[in-house]
Amino acid sequence: MARHGVLPTRQRSVGFSILGVIGEILLTLAAVCALYIAWQLWWTGVVAERTQMETRQTVSWSDPASSGSGTQVAQPQQGDPPVQPSVVTDGSLVAQLYIPRFGLNWQRNIVEGISAEQLAKHGLGHYPTSQLPGQIGNFAIAGHRGGYGEPLAYVDQLQEGDPIIIRTQDYWYVYRYTKYKITVPEDVAVVSPDPFNVGATPTHRYITLTTCEPRYSPTPATHRWISWGELDYWAKVSDGVPKELAATDSSGQVKFAVQETPSVFARVSSLTDVLMWVMIAYVVIYLAALVAWRYPALRSIREGERPRPDASLYGWLLRRQPGPVVIQLLLVAILAFAGAVALFQWAFPWLASNVPMFQLMSAYVSVE
């Protein structure tokens, strides 16, 4: 018999309860899959951005020459360009890449090596078998088009004559985009010293950008998008910035157009710290609600004021949070956020590194 004032409710059968729980599990898995996509396409880029910032800080390259409150425009130099760096090691910073077509503040690091680790951590990698900036031949670079900061996401927007600018410690190398080719991964000739006359002694200074095609693919991309450019001129960093990277402000002063403005998320040093503070917030709110209200939902069920609910994972979790419904929902939201942070920090990187299905989803794009 139901207590006076409480309307009896008809509980679902065991079969329907089981189906309900299965449905909740499937919804949870769908949310985890959506979070994995967000991790792959967005958070890996945040991590890459933070790593690139830290790398630039460790090398402490000097700023381009300035004059008063403005920046000088470096004059193009005559003669053969110097080659820099003279010595490279795997993972070391080779150069920085600027492509104005991709955005006013667009810049990426180029490190030595095209392993999955280097491309994931740093964005762009230099083919060790190709030439260095300034050398006659082909300065070849590999980069992701989706995920890990997607440095080469918009290569299809390049137009003939667009500047592709390389900065080493002391020099600028301004290349001009010429053309592209869509090919298969086995076509290694595209990164040869003379990609247009394979086997011949090179006489020009080329740059090659290699990335995946199509941009998004559930399995490793079947093709590669190859972009080529040729050296236009070189300049000294001590003389200023190339005119292609110079801008004039309202007062007429020349400024370096590229300003390093890290995203809010890139300033987060570690998700472990975020998780710690989130859990501290949960414990504080939980204990405060426990002292003030305890478990009103469980009490009302125990005393017969509310009917015993059907089986539900979400309902079970909600009822075990103290306080009124608003506080309960807040606590559950904090737990869900903490779970997402844990997935980003530990679970998803492990899956992408160890589970074959997730390894196949990784956007490793170098031409091998």
Rank of each mutant, 00 (worst) to 15 (best):
S251R: 06
P262W: 07
W228M: 10
Q259T: 11
D249F: 04
A235P: 01
P218A: 14
L231G: 03
P220L: 15
T248I: 05
V237T: 04
V254I: 12
K255F: 01
A247L: 12
W234V: 00
T248F: 09
F256P: 06
A257M: 12
Y216L: 12
S250D: 00
G252Y: 05
G252M: 06
G252E: 12
P262L: 02
W234R: 00
Q259N: 06
E230D: 11
A235M: 02
P262G: 10
S238H: 02
V258S: 01
V254M: 00
G240C: 01
K236V: 03
A257H: 03
S251V: 10
V258C: 06
D249A: 07
I226E: 05
A247F: 14
V241P: 01
A221M: 09
V258H: 02
S227K: 14
S238F: 04
K236H: 07
Y233K: 03
P220V: 15
Q259F: 04
T261L: 14
S227P: 15
L231E: 02
R224K: 11
H223A: 14
V237L: 03
A247C: 07
P262Q: 04
W225P: 04
K243P: 11
A221R: 11
D249N: 07
E244T: 08
Y216Q: 08
I226C: 06
Y233W: 12
T222G: 05
T248W: 10
L245H: 15
A247M: 07
P242R: 11
D239Y: 03
A235R: 00
S251G: 09
S227D: 14
Y216P: 04
D239E: 05
Q253K: 04
P218Y: 05
V254S: 01
A221I: 08
S238G: 02
K243R: 13
G240A: 03
D249Q: 07
S227E: 15
T219K: 07
I226N: 08
Q253C: 03
